[in-house]
Nucleic acid binder design. Structure first.
Length: 277
DNA sequence: TTAATTTGACCCTT
DNA sequence: AAGGGTCAAATTAA
């Protein structure tokens, strides 16, 4: 069992390393912000998994995984878990005539599970979750809502990171392979949101009561709202992370560190080096 | 037949 | 109590 964990750990680290290299490659391509962000997400997910493995080893007493502290009712546990997921929002503008939500393909496979009319909003909000939720326990969800001001703009709000392997094409190995392949197709810039005219990501730190059980992990509140520097004139980014409890649910899911954990590196800022540009 | 979407009801949070 | 988010049965698509 120990050996298995170690393999997992190494695997995650290797994957993180490979993803970092991919990211480096993408830094030289001026076109695709979204790919980079996704790579970043994947890197963070790898670190998160690796860390959770270590955390488990560090805190778990010799015999078993810490049992859930007190058997929360299923519903409560789900709620708590939901709360702990990081959240960030994109504003997506699509080309005229192509403005269908279905075109907002970000490389993941989503399954719609609800739609709701929102008070004061002209258009309903669509609720999507990862197709692999049941199979792989992937908790990523997103909400898509068309802006009532400008119907070509969609607010896409993501919650939770993908823990699935996202192998849409049944060809596992590298989880980001599909993106790379698409990238080479023509000069259509961003493969993830081909219809983009602009992309707008918001970052907030909705830290609420701010009781970080993660101790010295500081949220990236120091991150100045990176208004700026995206190539085609768009804008402000807002990633909202919710630091709440850390859940030890399924071991495979493990800790979900919020997006803002990039703040672990004191030298890292979102607006530095035109990170998103 | 299976998978995805639709949609009203229900639950949770504010 | 109101509004937002999720569930799940019914419906539609592949």
């Amino acid at each position: 069992m120990e050996e298995w964990e170690q393999k997992c750990l190494i695997n995650e680290l290797l994957q993180g390393r490979e993803l970092a290299m991919q990211l480096q490659a993408h830094l030289n391509l001026p076109s695709c912000n979204e790919t980079r962000e996704l790579l970043l997400q994947q890197i963070q997910a790898s670190y998160d998994k690796a860390l959770s493995l270590l955390h488990y080893k560090a805190t778990g007493t010799s015999d078993t995984i810490d049992p859930p502290p007190q058997s929360l009712p299923v519903r409560d546990a789900a709620t708590v878990q939901r709360k702990s997921l990081p959240r960030w929002t994109h504003q997506v503008r699509v080309g005229p005539g192509t403005a269908m939500e279905g075109n907002l393909d970000d490389g993941f496979s989503w399954r719609k599970y609800g739609q709701k009319d929102i008070l004061g909003a002209k258009y309903p909000r669509g609720y999507y979750r990862c197709t692999h939720r049941n199979v792989q326990g992937c908790l990523a969800t997103k909400q898509v809502q068309r802006s009532d001001g400008d119907p070509t703009i969609f607010d896409v709000s993501y919650r939770g990171r993908h823990t699935c392997s996202n192998n849409n094409q049944e060809q596992g190995t590298s989880t980001i392979e599909p993106y790379q392949q698409q990238q080479h197709i023509g000069n259509q810039t961003c493969p993830l949101f081909p219809n983009y005219l602009s992309l707008n990501i918001k970052v907030e730190n909705d830290v609420g009561d701010g009781n970080y059980e993660t101790g010295n992990l500081s949220p990236t509140s120091t991150c100045p709202n990176p208004t700026g520097v995206m190539n085609n004139g768009s804008t402000s980014v807002a990633i909202e992370s919710e630091f709440t409890e850390i859940i030890q649910a399924a071991p495979t899911v493990g800790l979900e560190f919020p997006f803002g954990n990039a703040g672990l590196d004191p030298n890292f800022t979102f607006d530095d080096n035109g990170f998103f540009s």
